[in-house]
Design a protein around this nucleic acid. Structure first.
Length: 450
RNA sequence: GUGAUUGUAGCUCAGUUGGUUAGAGCGCCGGAUUGUGGUUCCGGAGGUCGGGGGUUCAAAUCCCCUCAGUCACCCCA
């Protein structure tokens, strides 16, 4: 067989992993700085936990795990004859791979309600899986970095999340656009045109505005069966780009007014706070996940064409889905893979590599044990080091040293052995000198700052 | 789920209207250089042309099927 990996998945070599770790470390550091604590949940959840939370599309994209044992024997024969995978699923699979980190977190919060204190702030950096067809910036297995707070309605958390986005992307060296909107405005809009139950197709259409333009949106809405009057109101809404305009449009409609003042309060919290990136109010921002009820956030790179690299929002009622008390929550998610792709394209990850190690080379096989001894002395001093196994020509050893990007090489040979010295070569300058072991340690510690 | 596109050496790709033994660059291995890499020079290894079937005197090239990758749409990070 020829080796391969499933589509939409990737191997990561050492170089990539150092770069990824650089990103994850910065995100994690800021999560903790902002008072979030880590949790982890299993890769698999019960399917009933996952199903119905992400909309029909989401359900389609769930990876389902086949039951163990002779599961086919338990499927009613009518269903087998029907060959309807959808209907048979409940008999074939009771577990699925997690699709995001938010739903598992809500499940966690309900299950561990007695152990957590509200408001509960947690972060989670783990892979999620979607049976999507892969393309640029889209994989079937990818990491999300989520920070959520549950059990508080306070808008300070919305503001906090905006700052978190801003600070993390600033430290990563990325320029981004952070956009904010409020689901209450969208739902009020649908209510205004007497189409409250059509909120998801309508918001889906609105969300596409910057891609397909006003006419495109109009066409979709026509297809959805809205009448001219309704479409006209939506078109009006889409032309507004400031809060006072929105306020005027909705006059004394309560839900919209609440949404507007929420956004205003968030801006008030942020007033005067130094930010590297711009936060803009965008009434056309909708976001796909259906569980958001309040503020919604989305982050896009201004430098590289790529889907959103971060997003989030407030959800009022996720815990109730699992039979818990109603706990409001607010959370954001960093799309690590896309951030990686963006940074790679901008060349921002080139220096994200670990300090090159020290490598010991042997001139003579007889000196291997001596070399091993030197190696351990270096390691005891905290110097990242390695010993090339005996038996290779110096040229080959040198080439290896070059390949692994060794900063220093130590050469042990009969001549040096006679004088109780070690040859030290700085691979970046090519300079070489002899010194005793303790002096060698000092040189390396000094130069590498280890 | 829908649509496009590409599969030729480890990698990136040439390969003319079908025509002898399928090429290049990079990489790899060896040597020039038995105590010194990244430069240079010389030599070498490495290919079921994604797979299967068909047309033909002859197929990497044309046709059909199939598999895989990539990209776009839907949706999303």
């Amino acid at each position: 067989m020829t080796p391969g990996i499933p589509k939409g998945t990737r191997d990561f070599g050492p170089e990539e992993l150092y770069k990824r770790r650089y990103i994850f470390d910065i995100i994690q550091k800021h999560f903790e700085l902002y008072g979030y604590s880590p949790i982890e949940t299993p890769s698999m959840e019960n399917l009933e936990t996952l199903l119905g939370k992400y909309g029909d599309e989401g359900d389609q994209l769930l990876f389902k795990v086949l039951n163990n044992g002779d599961f086919l024997s338990k499927v009613p024969t009518e269903l087998l004859d029907e060959k309807n995978s959808q209907k048979a699923t409940s008999h074939l699979s009771k577990r699925g791979l997690r699709y995001d980190l938010t739903i598992p977190f809500a499940r966690y919060a309900v299950m561990h309600r007695n152990d957590i204190t509200l408001p509960f702030k947690r972060y989670q950096i783990q892979p999620v899986w979607r049976a999507d067809r892969p393309q640029k910036g889209r994989y079937q297995e990818f990491y999300q970095c989520d920070a959520d707070v549950i059990g508080s309605e306070s808008l300070q958390y919305e503001a906090e999340c905006v700052l978190l986005f801003d600070q993390v992307f600033a430290e990563l060296g990325l320029e981004v656009d952070i956009r904010i909107n409020n689901r209450k405005l969208l739902s009020a809009l649908c209510y205004l045109i007497d189409a409250g139950e059509r909120i998801s197709p309508i918001t889906a259409a609105i969300d596409k505005l910057d891609k397909i333009g006003h006419d495109g949106v109009r066409k979709i809405l026509e297809k959805e069966g809205l009448n001219d009057q309704q479409i006209e109101v939506i078109a009006q809404y889409l032309k507004i780009d400031d809060l006072s305009g929105i306020r005027h449009l909705f006059q004394d409609q309560e839900e919209a007014q609440v949404g507007i003042s929420e956004i205003e309060q968030i801006f008030n919290f942020l007033n005067g706070k130094p930010m590297s990136n711009k936060l803009t109010f965008d009434p056309t921002l909708a976001r796909g996940l259906s569980y958001y009820t309040g503020a919604i956030l989305e982050v896009k790179s201004t430098q590289v064409e790529m889907g959103s690299i971060g997003g989030g929002g407030r959800y009022d009622n996720l815990t109730a889905l699992f039979g818990g008390e109603k706990l409001g929550g607010m959370g954001i998610s960093f799309g690590a893979e896309r951030i990686y792709d963006v940074m790679e394209e901008l060349g921002l990850l080139d220096q994200a590599q670990i300090d090159a190690p020290v490598l010991i080379l042997l001139q003579d096989e007889q000196l291997q044990e001596y070399g091993f001894d030197i190696l351990q002395q270096l390691r005891r001093h905290g110097i990242r080091s390695d010993l090339y196994p005996a038996g290779a020509k110096m040229k080959k050893q040198m080439k290896y040293a070059d390949r692994v990007k060794a900063r220093y090489i130590l050469i042990l040979g009969p001549e040096e052995w006679e004088r109780k010295e070690i040859a030290v070569k700085d691979m970046t300058t090519g300079q070489q000198s002899n010194a005793g072991i303790s002096e060698v340690v000092d040189i390396i510690l000094d130069k590498t700052g280890a």
